[in-house]
Amino acid sequence: MKFRAKIADTGCLNHFTRISNMIAKLAKTCTLRISPDKLNFILSDKVANGGVSMWCELEQESFFSEFQMEGISAENNEIYIELTAENLSRALKTAQNAKALKIKLTNKHFPCLTVSVDLLSISSSSRIVTHDIPIKVIPRKLWKDLQEPVVPDFDVSIYLPVLKTMKSVVEKMKNISSYLIIEANLNGELNLKIETELVCVTTHFKDLGRPPLASGSASQGRNPEQMAEVRIDVKKLLQFLAGQQVNPTKALCNIVNNKIVHFDLLLEDVSLQYFIPALS
C-alpha cells in the first residue's frame, strides 16, 4: 500500500487548502479515500441516530501534477485512512506562497500522512517544512460503511440562495430557537422558519429556480405550491453554512419531507454532498 502526490501549481495548492479548511469546519474526524482518479473526504455518522453525513469528491488530476498510489490489492485498488481534519488544515496553512507541496503515506513509529511544504526563500537555498499527521488505516471489511451515500427519493429540489446571505439569516435565528424548519416547493420558493411559544419568524426566498431533471418519484404529480418541510437542528445547518470557503457554481437543496435535507454543492473540480436528518 503506497501513496505519494505533488501539487506544483499555486492556484491548485490554494484551492486544495480552501477545501481542507472547509472539511475541518464540517468534520472533526473524517475518512480520506484515495483511489487512482479521485480523493474523497467522508463523514459517515449514522443519520438514523441524528448524525450528519458528508461525501466530498475531488478529481485528482485537477489538483496534482504527480500522483502515484497502490491500494491493498489489484482488485481493491483503494486506500482508506482516518485522520483529524484540523491537523491536515493546519499543515496546509504553512503552504501559503509555497513552491510545491508533497503528500505521502509514511510509517514513523506509527502510520502517518506526511505533508512536506517547499517554501520560497530569499536565498537560493530551499526550505522544507514537514508535518507528520497521525492516521488510522481502515481495514477492507469496514469499507462497506464508507461508500457514497444514496440520495433518497426527494419531494422537492431547489436551488439555494447565496450561502452568505443564508448564513447571516440562520445566525440570527439560532439566538431564538434551537431548531429550524426548512420549507420549499416546486415553484422555487424557500422558507427558513423558527417557531417558539412567543414568536414565529420566517424568511422567504423566491424565484430560486428548480434544477433541470430534478424529479424524484415523490415529486411526480405534486402540487407546485405545496411545501415540503424538514425540521432540523439549527446548529448543524449553521455549521454547514459556516464551513463554505468558496462560492459554489451550483448549490442545491433536496428535501425528503419530514425526514432529511440533502445539500449538493458543485465547485470547480469538487463536489460536496451533505445530509442533515430531521429532528424526531
Rank of each mutant, 00 (worst) to 15 (best):
H15P: 00
K141E: 11
S215Y: 05
I7M: 08
A242G: 13
P224G: 01
A85I: 09
N14S: 10
C56P: 01
V169P: 00
V137P: 05
T17W: 00
L272S: 06
A48P: 00
D118E: 15
G209N: 05
E183I: 00
F63H: 04
A251K: 03
L241V: 01
L26N: 07
C200E: 15
T202E: 15
R18E: 10
W143S: 06
H131P: 00
C12P: 00
K164S: 14
L198I: 06
A74F: 10
T202W: 11
L279T: 10
S44C: 13
L92R: 07
K193N: 11
G11D: 14
N97D: 12
V169A: 10
Q68Y: 10
P248M: 04
L101I: 13
A27I: 04
G221Q: 12
N14E: 11
T249V: 08
I81Q: 08
D118L: 15
E171D: 14
A184I: 03
P134H: 02
L190I: 07
S20G: 03
L105H: 01
P152D: 14
L105S: 08
L120N: 15
E197V: 07
K250N: 11
L208R: 05
C200G: 02
E75W: 12
N49D: 15
D118T: 09
F263K: 05
D233R: 09
K6D: 05
F275D: 09
L105E: 06
L92E: 01
G209Q: 12
L198P: 00
P134K: 09
A98Y: 01
M54R: 01
G243K: 02
H15I: 03
M166C: 06
G209Y: 05
A214E: 05
L58C: 08
N14T: 13
Q245K: 06
N247M: 02
T114W: 00
A98D: 05
K28T: 15
R222T: 13
R231C: 09
L142A: 08
F3E: 02
T17S: 10
K206L: 12
V47T: 12
E229W: 09
V199F: 04
A91D: 09
D118R: 10
G51E: 02
R210E: 05
L119E: 12
A85Y: 03
E183R: 08
Q239P: 02
S271R: 12
P211V: 01
K102L: 12
E75D: 12
L279A: 07
S121N: 14
G209C: 07
V162G: 06
N49W: 11
R127A: 11
